[in-house]
Design a protein around this nucleic acid. Structure first.
Lengths: 257, 257
DNA sequence: CGGGGCCTTGAGGCAATTCAAATTATGTGG
DNA sequence: CCACATAATTTGAATTGCCTCAAGGCCCCG
């Protein structure tokens, strides 16, 4: 029965989300149950579909269940900058609960290879309000999650502003790899959720230069690539090359990788 | 008496802070009074002094009263990136209330010209907790303030990642000018709170290039300079040159500048 | 088997950097 | 109030990391 209950729990679309909340804050089992019991509407989105558009007045909070999404902003002359990458379990726009007018686009970056779509769970702001009013620990966990994302934004300002191409790319790879690992998504050996164009838009480089830099990183043994797979033969070296110190992600119980 | 009371109110070190909170959210007069009555310890800091250091376990929330401060992060090889500029009335680190381990430095960028120091009001987290527990509207206003800052971080990722030197600099000038105006600090004609090195660190450019770009902007009539003063002969042109759309600052009642 | 993503490669150009040094402000103590 | 130290701005010359433009190749999918 315990086993059965656990199986059911992992089938809950919000299961990874509950784990994500606990990366930064402790929740009681009642809190976790309350999160898992949130009324959530599952929706699916194809590759490149928008989940939120700049200017939307958002009524729901979207939580990524499968696939990968990116948040981006655009300059007046159309240049795109990715400001965040979202993985399964990540809330995409908790901020819109407090500030419902969206100022970024959120878009599917990668879909499930067999299903051909990404899954998102929508939670109405009203239901969310009820949850956080009855569960202060959950409210706290959500705010901490928001603030950790904020810390990551600042790290991205630094990454985009001060590092050279190789370091920028290595840094982003490290961040994604670590976050996947911590959420039980096992990056190493699995498929990189971003293509070279995404990496370009996330680092402020051109796709051409990303391509050349990846080539060079491969030659230097920093990464290995077979088709869509990206592997890290030497995690420590990549971390150093990417000037990556994960403290800005505020992950509980992470001493060193 | 009413006049007297108002005078006293403006002398309160937290007066501008209470106005800042109301930029994004409405507060009742009881809420405002509660904010103004917060026990705050005034401290002074000289030019370039640190208010918070990366790694600190912060016990207080710092609110800038006078002068200018910047928040920055540093790469492994010592390159600095400013990620935020703070003006009088801005809370410097509300985030540390929820996530007390600092991951940025916060430093005085400019002091009062006659007093030679910047003023900061320290509010103990304990007192802050009491306030937000008794005043939900204040709690909400603070979270919204945090999230507006977050939106600004994302705009900075875009600014640093995708725009050319002139646009980057014009954008930052616009942001600071607008924020000063909205807080009643009247930028135009007053002294720019940042020097060229700060602008360089905020835009990801070198000080040398910032200097050359400012020269060019002056020649093009985008800005005017007399000693420390920076003036904008044509606000509209600067806004366009800086690709500046203030919606990301979520300022209530701002239709267009 | 044709078309659309995505990746790859080459050649040339430029925006911004690096390095170096002079000039001008700002601040300090005698 | 001047002499000195320090910080900030300015200018020049040479270099380079990354971009632009352009085209070709691969693979998946209908």
């Amino acid at each position: 029965m315990g086993n059965q209950a656990q199986m059911n729990q992992q089938d809950n679309p919000l299961w990874r989300f509950s784990r994500r909340l606990q990366l930064h804050s402790d929740l009681g089992s009642g809190d976790v149950q309350a999160v898992l019991s949130l009324p959530a509407t599952p929706i699916t989105r194809r590759q490149s579909a928008y989940i939120v558009r700049e200017g939307d007045l958002v009524q729901n909070c979207a939580i990524l269940v499968s696939g990968c999404a990116v948040r981006h902003r655009t300059t007046g002359d159309g240049n795109r900058q990715i400001v965040a990458v979202y993985l399964p379990g990540d809330p995409l726009d908790l901020d819109h609960f407090y500030l419902p007018l969206a100022d970024d686009d959120i878009q599917v970056a990668r879909v499930d290879d067999v299903q051909k779509f990404a899954e998102v769970a929508l939670v109405r702001h009203e239901d969310l309000r009820e949850l956080i009013e009855s569960r202060p620990a959950v409210a706290r966990a959500m705010i901490m999650t928001l603030l950790v994302d904020t810390s990551a934004f600042r790290e991205w300002v630094l990454n985009v502003g001060q590092r050279d191409a190789t370091t920028k790319i290595a840094h982003i790879l490290c961040e994604i790899a670590l976050r996947m690992e911590v959420l039980g998504l096992t990056f190493d050996g699995s498929i990189l959720p971003l293509n070279q164009i995404h990496i370009a838009e996330a680092t402020g480089l051109t796709p051409v230069h990303v391509n050349r830099t990846l080539k060079q990183m491969q030659k230097d043994g920093l990464i290995e690539r077979k088709e869509q797979l990206v592997q890290f033969p030497d995690w420590r070296r990549l971390r150093i090359a990417g000037d990556f110190d994960p403290h800005y992600l505020h992950i509980q119980g992470l001493e060193q990788g």
